[in-house]
Every structure is written in structure tokens, then in C-alpha cells.
Design a binder for these strands. Structure first.
Lengths: 230, 230
DNA sequence: CGTATGGATTGACTTAAGTCAACGACAACG
DNA sequence: CGTTGTCGTTGACTTAAGTCAATCCATACG
């Protein structure tokens, strides 16, 4: 059995696919490995298939002329990326880079289109994945334009907590510089906001461990987007 | 023949669908009409199908606590909206409101899922539509976070020009207040930026008619996101 | 024909967050 | 054990864009 059969058949994208199909699919997949900070593809590159991360962590991001980066997604094992050009043609809309040593499977476009054509369940899975992406983008745009940095940060921390069993102590799985890039700000500002929120006894910060002290306060901040007091 | 058969079979979403299917689909569609400023659905509403605009103009938007609005899309005839919950379940991710007297067809979820299941071409069309939405969102996030207001405005004007036969005189099809909402700013700021760009002889503004005087300058501004002077 | 009404503009002021630069902490490594 | 580099923090300053308020303009309307 293929080493990634279990991972692949457990992903949202390929779930419900018969074992035969999974093995067939894995037969045509190309395994790729990337060092930390290695580019996987660049915005504008011609695309010929999609990737599924199997190991490590991948950032998808845009870069401004001046070099500021806006992170769109950070993907871990099991998550597909680079799927947009498979269906709308053309080129990748953003850059992809491994932020730690990573591995991914690459699936050529034609095999996927064939699979989807013959397999309505996979088509619906793919539509579900893309719908969730769209949903997350609307939230991200909302956060970026309708909330200030402390509001975005509070919303992020609450999201992390809900992902991590609603534990009161969350652990950042990325560097603070990357978090700043995801929140649409810069490390200096993030640092100041963490300090302010600690002053207000909303949180307690120890490296990448952040203790959420006042869930109601954080929720209010995440909702209103405005910090109540200094 | 159904009055909207031509419009529907010409949309990206349903193109390539056999006439029989189109008529069947139109048989189950519900026609809806909306006055100017009437809500079509609200963020958080339980969804049971998607809409295709047939007439008028629809804005899809988010609202902040303080009432500021961020417009995500403005859709005209032939464009589907409200499709996200059809595939990922749950509720609408944003509000939809008619900005002029409008009409739309509503397609119940089950009929669509059935159609897609039995019709791979439609599945691929839907995937193409959603891919393009994702692509546009990445551009929108890039503009909102990596460019300043003049850069976003220049990019918008150039996009309008390319949509309108590359004419040097573009016509805004929405109010300046709505444009501000789409660009992630407020009418006052938009007004000032138009004035600044006019001062720099980049454009000439006469109501909703905007003459693009310096395409290279506008491109530079749209790229860099920074206004060169004044 | 005067007057509401919504859209747009302008001015004075405030503020969130970016820039630039220095410094601190900590781990990895020779 | 000091050196080097990465990551994070802090301070002083600048700036883009938001707020609030007044005004303007055009069109619609009684």
C-alpha cells in the first residue's frame, strides 16, 4: 500500500473515493520535497496541476512592490493548494513557499479533470473545499478592512483556541513575523499589540504560548474591532 | 420558451447545458424581484439554494459593528451569487442587497446538486466559476492590504477601461459611495484621491465619466501602490 | 419655482499603524 | 565559551486615512 494512501483518502478533497481510485491516483502523483524557505511555485507561473501537502507547512502569499508580504493561507498536511488554475486555467494567483522542511504530492491536471468528470462525489468534494476557501476569504477581507489590528489578533487567538480544544492556553504554530504577515501588519505592530493586550489582562504571553485570560474581553475585541482602553 | 432561457444558457455557470436541461432547470427556478435597497439575504441566514441575477445590480457586502461596509462583489445580469452555502452547507457568508431595482432567479439546492451529480460539465463550470472568484479575492486582498487607496483606485480604473473596450473614457456604473465601499475606504477619502489624481493630470473627472489621461502613470500607480508626488 | 433630498466635496483635526533604528534574548554552532 | 544569526521588542517619529461638520450641487418633487 502506498505510504500516503491513508492521508490522501482522509482528506476532505478525496474522501469517499474508492480504494481502487485512491491507488490509481497515487500512482500518477509525483512526490516532492522542499527545504525550509524553498519556493514551491511563484505567482504567474503556468500551472499544470494541484498539490496536496503531506508534511510540514506551506505559506501562500502575495508580495507588494516594496517587499511587504500578505499571507493568504498557511497549509498543513492533508490540505490541497494551487487548485485555482486547474479549473480556471492560466497561472497561479499567488506564491507558495515551504516555511519548514516539507513534502507534497503533485497531481497533474488531466488526471484530476478525468477523475472529477467520472466521479460526481469528488466534484462535490472539490466544490466543498473551494466553498470553504471562499468563506474564509470573506472572513479575511472582513477582518482586514473592518477591524483594526487588535481586533484581528483577538479573532485569530479565539480561532486558535477553538481549533485547540478550546484550551485556555494556545500555542502559535508559526513565527510572530508570519502571524504579522497573515494579519496584514508588521512584526513591530504585532509586538506592541500583544503587549497592550497583556497590559489589559486580556492575555499573557510567554514566547509562543499565549494564555487567554479574559475570553469575554477578547470576544468583544474581536467583534467590535476596537480596543476599549489602553 | 422561457423568457430567461437565453440568458441562463449563456452564463458561465450553465453554458454547455443541453436545452432540455435548461428548460427543466428553469422549471424549478423561482423568479424574484427586488426594489432598490431591498435586502436579498443577510449574512448568517440559512441558505437553501443559489441565485442568478437577471436584471439590475446586486452588492454582496460585509458590515462592521460601527456600520462601515466592505463590498465584496457587485454582480450584474447572468452572474450567480449565494453559491457558497450550497456546497459547504450552513449560512450565507455576507449580505446581499439590490442597489437598483433588480430581478433574480432562485435555484433550490437539491436540484442543483442533482444536476451537478449527473452532469460533469456543469460541475466543471461551477468549479471554474468558483476558481475565478477565488482568484479575484486574492487580487482584492492584495489591493486592500498591499496598496494604498490611490493605488487601488488606479487599478480599478484600469480594470474598468479594459472592461469597456479599452476606451480612454470610462463610466462608473456605481455611485462613488459604493466605489469607496468596494475599495475599502470612505467617500471623503475617495473624493480627495480623485482630486489629487486630477491635479497630477492622471485623470479628468466629470461626474461619473472619468477620462484617463496618463495610462502609464496610472499603471505605475496601480503597480507600486504609492502616489509619486503631491 | 422654491425646497427637500441624496450624492459629492472640502476643511480642520485625530489617530492607527507604518518606518527606521537600536537593542535584547536565545539557540545553534564552531 | 564566545560568536553569529534569527527572532522579537522597544522607542521616536511620520504619515495615510479616518472622523466630524459644514457646504455644495443637482435632481426630483410638491
Amino acid at each position: 500500500m502506498h505510504p500516503y494512501a491513508e492521508l490522501i483518502s482522509g482528506t476532505l478533497l478525496f474522501e469517499g473515493l474508492a480504494d481502487g481510485h485512491v491507488n490509481e491516483l497515487l500512482g500518477i502523483a509525483v512526490e516532492k520535497a522542499y527545504e525550509k524557505n524553498e519556493m514551491i511555485f511563484m505567482e504567474g507561473d503556468r500551472a499544470s496541476g494541484l498539490y496536496v501537502s503531506t508534511d510540514g507547512m506551506i505559506k501562500i502569499y502575495k508580495l507588494s512592490q516594496e517587499g511587504k508580504e500578505q499571507i493568504l493561507h498557511i497549509f498543513g498536511p492533508g490540505e490541497p493548494f494551487g487548485e485555482v488554475p486547474v479549473f480556471s486555467g492560466g497561472t497561479f494567483p499567488a506564491h507558495a513557499e515551504a516555511i519548514v522542511k516539507s513534502r507534497a504530492l503533485f497531481f497533474p491536471r488531466d488526471a484530476l479533470v478525468g477523475l472529477i468528470t467520472g466521479n460526481p462525489a469528488i466534484a462535490l468534494n472539490m466544490l466543498a473545499v473551494m466553498s470553504m476557501r471562499l468563506r474564509r476569504f470573506t472572513v479575511q477581507i472582513e477582518n482586514l478592512t473592518l477591524k483594526e489590528v487588535p481586533g484581528r489578533l483577538a479573532a485569530y487567538l479565539l480561532m486558535l483556541a477553538s481549533e485547540q480544544n478550546n484550551n485556555k492556553v494556545v500555542r502559535l504554530n508559526i513565527s510572530k513575523a508570519h502571524l504579522a504577515g497573515f494579519l496584514g501588519t508588521i512584526p513591530e505592530t504585532l509586538s506592541r499589540m500583544l503587549a497592550r493586550m497583556a497590559n489589559l489582562n486580556l492575555i499573557h504571553v510567554a514566547g509562543r504560548e499565549i494564555k487567554l485570560l479574559d475570553m469575554d474581553g477578547l470576544s468583544a475585541l474581536a467583534e467590535s474591532g476596537k480596543i476599549v482602553d489602553l
